[in-house]
Nucleic acid binder design. Structure first.
Lengths: 138, 138
DNA sequence: TTCCTTGCAAACGCTTTGCAGGAAG
DNA sequence: CTTCCTGCAAAGCGTTTGCAAGGAA
C-alpha cells in the first residue's frame, strides 16, 4: 500500500484506486505475465468495478513510466510483466503456454557484435524461443 | 510464368490469376518484406482488380504451403517474405524502417543449448534486433 | 460438372478514443 | 477549484469470414 503509493508518486501519476489495484495485482506472488484481459478478470474476481479501457490506459502509462514491460508474443494479445530491472528473454512452452525466463550474456554479446558489424548500434531486441518438453515428439 | 505455375501445382493449389500475380510480386528483384497491404497496393498499381481479402487468403495459403514466411514484427501489420530455404533473423533500422537479414550460427547453437538446459527441445524462435545507424545518437 | 476460389461487405478481436461525470491534489 | 482520471460506448485497425457469383480441372 505504502510502497505502491510511493511508486506511483515517483513516476508522477495520481494515486487513484484503479492504478493501485492494478499495481498490486502485478506485485502478487507468482504473477508474472498478464494480458490486459487477465488483469481485468482478476479485478472482476475481486469485485472491483474497473473498466477494461482503464486497464489498457493504466498499463500504457505504467509502460511509459517503466513500471511494466510489454511483450508482443505471437497471438494477438500483448502481455505485461513488472519491470524488475533485470533484463531477460523468454521461452514459451508451446504445449502448455507456460512462459520461462532466461538470460544469456553470450547471446546479448553476440547481438551487439552483429549490429556493430553492420554499422549499427543495438537499441533493443526481442528474442522468444518456442519450445516443447524434451521427449514429447511433435 | 512457367516457374510460378509449377510452384503452385507442386503445393496443390489451383493456378489462378490472383495467386500467380501475388507470387510474381514476391519474386521481383529487390522485394523482400511486404505486408498484405503492400502487396494489395502493388496489385492496384498494376491495374489488377484483386481484393484485399484475397491477398490475405492467398498469403495464408502460401504460408501453410511453405512458399512464404510470416513475421510479426512490432507494430500491427504482419510481414511476409519468400521462403528461400535459408533461415535467418532480422535487424530493423528503427530510423528508416529498413529490414536487414543476418545469420548467426553461434546464436542458433546457444538457443538450442538453452532450451536443452531447461529440459526442452527448440521448435522455433523469433529474434529481432532493433538498431540505429552508428553515430546517430538517439 | 464439381469443387475451389474470388470480391464484397460484414464481422472479429484487441486496443484506443471521445465524452461527460467524478475524484485527486 | 483545477486538472487529471474514469466508465461507457463507439470507433479504429488489421485480419477473417459468410455468401453468392465465377473460374479451374
Amino acid at each position: 500500500m505504502e510502497q505502491e503509493t510511493r511508486e506511483l508518486r515517483r513516476v508522477g501519476l495520481k494515486v487513484t484506486h484503479p492504478r493501485m489495484r492494478i499495481l498490486q495485482i502485478f506485485e502478487e506472488e507468482g504473477v508474472q505475465h498478464l494480458t490486459a484481459e487477465d488483469v481485468y478478470k482478476k479485478l472482476l474476481a475481486e469485485q472491483e468495478d474497473i473498466g477494461l479501457a482503464t486497464v489498457y490506459r493504466v498499463l500504457t502509462q505504467f509502460e511509459a513510466a517503466g513500471i511494466v514491460v510489454k511483450h508482443n508474443f505471437e497471438g494477438g494479445q500483448a502481455v505485461y510483466e513488472l519491470d524488475r530491472g533485470k533484463h531477460h528473454d523468454h521461452m514459451i512452452d508451446v504445449d502448455s503456454g507456460k512462459v520461462i525466463e532466461f538470460v544469456s550474456e553470450e547471446i546479448e554479446r553476440l547481438q551487439h557484435e552483429i549490429a556493430a558489424r553492420h554499422g549499427y548500434v543495438l537499441e533493443d531486441h526481442s528474442l522468444v524461443l518456442y519450445v516443447r518438453p524434451k521427449g514429447k515428439g511433435r
